[in-house]
Design a protein around this nucleic acid. Structure first.
Lengths: 143, 143
DNA sequence: CTAATTTCGGATAAGAACATCCTATATTTG
DNA sequence: CAAATATAGGATGTTCTTATCCGAAATTAG
């Protein structure tokens, strides 16, 4: 469904949303440790999120990555997924036809749209603040 | 969502279901042509379906691949997907956690289950006969 | 100002998915 | 039986994703 890069991104940014609420900034090493993701690769992923404007970063001692609470409320899962996986999840034919639309649909076109619409709504209506709250309460886990 | 191998499989076997209703058998070359998929790779995929028992094959002149109408009614999309992609679509955590279950769920566990349950029902309730009927009526297309 | 820390970014490597090629094997036709 | 046809399957190549490594740039602390 999502690429590994995208999965790592969601885990990392959820953690950052939680710590961000306490005004904390996190270094890459700590993020990778607490999410159980490979350091170097996670760095690349976080850089993409920064470039996409979903995350802040600060260099030097005491630096790291940072997601202010205000931003955590605005950023949705959908934005994170799009930043990493493009909008492959939304667009594109389930059966891989180069052209597939309502006028010339693949055999699964109809059924697929429903499933994907479901996914779209889920991703767009979930923000990082909500996800991080469950995490802080100890209801959910990152590794 | 599905691998290319799986997409090719669905396209090919849908076509075979349609032709099978007319008592026809199809050679690999014709299948690849009419589904717009790479020949050699499609061959591999069809072999997997044959080994999984979802499809019949006959060697030699006049041979090819064959899906009898009776079988087309019994074979669901779910079976095809499982034969090619294993049950990765059903199992596995959306965020890639090695262990993710109701007792120790990832932040998306709940939401993800709904989406995937939706997909599961869709795949299990769609059989090849139905798909091929739409194709024969010219309502849907394979390339 | 110097040294230490931390992200940034390019280069490179390892692995999986996708794709092709060629020979072997089975089957039909003449 | 011989020749032609078509799938089966192993070997190989290509491309994309995943992952690592290392030096550059920026920032803080002393």
């Amino acid at each position: 469904m999502f690429s590994k890069a995208c999965q790592y991104a969601i885990r990392a940014i959820t953690l950052l949303a939680m710590e961000g609420r306490k005004g904390r900034r996190m270094a890459l090493v700590e993020i990778a440790e607490r999410t159980g993701t490979p350091r170097a690769f996670t760095a690349k992923v976080l850089q993409q999120l920064v470039r996409a404007g979903l995350l802040d970063s600060v260099k030097g001692p005491g630096g790291g990555f940072d997601l202010p609470p205000q931003k955590a409320r605005q950023v949705t899962l959908s934005m994170v997924v799009k930043a990493i996986d493009n909008d492959d999840v939304y667009r594109g034919c389930g059966m891989g036809l180069p052209q597939c639309n309502a006028r010339k649909p693949c055999p699964l076109h109809e059924q697929f749209q429903h499933v994907r619409e479901n996914l779209r709504i889920m991703l767009e209506s979930t923000n990082l603040h909500d996800l991080s709250m469950d995490l802080e309460r100890g209801v959910t886990f990152l590794k």
